[in-house]
Design a protein around this nucleic acid. Structure first.
Lengths: 243, 243
DNA sequence: CGATGGATTGAATCTAATCAAGGCGTGTGG
DNA sequence: CCACACGCCTTGATTAGATTCAATCCATCG
């Protein structure tokens, strides 16, 4: 659901509102924050590790990731950001980013000065609560990723990623037999799961052969959602979804 | 440095004070919070995933970890908590813990009702800032761990863990040729790094043979701190240390 | 039409896991 | 005080899962 005509700050209010009931006064304040819409090209960085953190924002379209690289330049994707997700909230509290925020696909973001959002969150307790819950949910996803990479084999790892992605884009309803677009290359999937692209390829084939998923060009269909969740050891608790 | 005679809430004020200057009024408020001192035995849980989150605390002595397990019961250690570290801050904002908090060694903690600490943080912006910075620093450590497990081989992974542990307990000064106690079994190290105990054993031997560390019973000495940092690809940025 | 980026396949290699046994130190109970 | 048990560390042999390297295929795009 791209909503190109919408004011990105409305979208921000909506995202925050999913975590706490935002009062009208706070909504008014947020909507008055000046923002800059920016287009990001695949591979370009919005936030760079070690620079000065003074801006945050919201993703309005496309796909963006938090990532870090080691000395050899190997990239580890830490978190995939979907449209509607907040970007760079860290900057409200820490002045040096510890990771990069990078576009995977062509993306659009709205950028907001961190100090203005911080001021609003200082004024309205509920806004701060919403932001804290968002940050903590991100941390929870990082923890699950550590469990995923540290303890599960490639099959379960990839299955888990697919489950998480599907739930996050589509909600939890009737996923079985529904297909969705997975706009990640196998290289990028590998970077997200600590595996090589070649092994991602083989593992995708394995999941397909086992009748868990079906795929064509860029989309994936869940053939057996229940069994996929099962082998992925996936459950939604860690996403802290609101009912 | 165990400080058994100290009021744990003083310790909490100190910990928060490292992240933001806490005003006297806030200090007074914190020191008035009722707390329960509790002893934790190795393996016992302070917070359990999926239960109700209504308490947080501070570790006063011993070693405690955040961990999750998969369906097969394999444990992944996510974060090692050292004396002075806050525990379960999540509970101020989310009502279901997404991970366990478990004692590794015999430990002492002071437990505080989350809603009381939340009330104080709602009243004093600076307290909330301190708490947010602590939570974000934890998240940063999780990200580095993902990079560590996802992209580095056992040697670098273990070296990185040792570097982090040393810096966190001892500060960054003159680490070279200094020994410190590492009260983790090889099993526990494995759980922290996504490796088996057997492989930890072999990798420790490798680091020793390469003249990077020396070890006896329970302690480790850094023989070549610079080179260890180098092969670990370690730098302290992600710890967001205050000067 | 050639160029490019991604997907696929195969063969060889390597890292880490697994399985199994033995060693060492400490604490306990007869 | 010795014997034994227990937890942890160590070692060796084998296996398995994932990487590496290299080639080919395929679709898209200028």
């Amino acid at each position: 659901m791209p909503r190109p005509d919408e004011n990105p700050l409305d979208r921000m209010v909506e995202t925050l509102g999913e975590r706490a009931p935002i009062p009208d006064k706070a909504i008014t304040a947020i909507l008055q924050v000046p923002y800059v819409a920016k287009q990001l090209y695949p591979g370009s960085l919005f936030v760079r590790e070690g620079t000065r953190a003074d801006k945050c924002g919201i993703l309005t379209s496309g796909l963006v990731v938090c990532q870090k690289t080691n000395r050899d330049g190997d990239r580890q994707i830490l978190l995939v950001k979907l449209p509607g997700d907040m970007l760079g909230l860290q900057s409200l509290y820490l002045d040096t980013p510890d990771h990069n925020i990078q576009a995977l696909t062509e993306s659009e973001i709205a950028i907001v000065p961190s100090d203005l959002l911080k001021a609003i969150s200082d004024e309205f307790v509920v806004v701060r609560d919403a932001i804290s819950r968002i940050m903590l949910t991100e941390a929870s996803m990082l923890r699950e990723l550590i469990l995923n990479i540290g303890q599960r084999d490639a099959r379960a790892r990839l299955a888990h990623f697919l489950c998480e992605f599907a739930v996050r884009i589509g909600g939890t309803n009737k996923i079985s037999n529904r297909s969705f677009e997975l706009p990640l290359t196998q290289e990028q999937l590998g970077d997200a799961l600590g595996l090589t692209a070649v092994h991602i390829n083989r593992t995708l084939q394995l999941l397909t052969r086992d009748g868990l998923i079906a795929r064509d060009a860029k989309s994936i269909r869940f053939v057996d959602w229940d069994r996929l969740q099962d082998i992925a050891d996936f459950s939604t608790g860690y996403l802290h979804l609101q009912k």
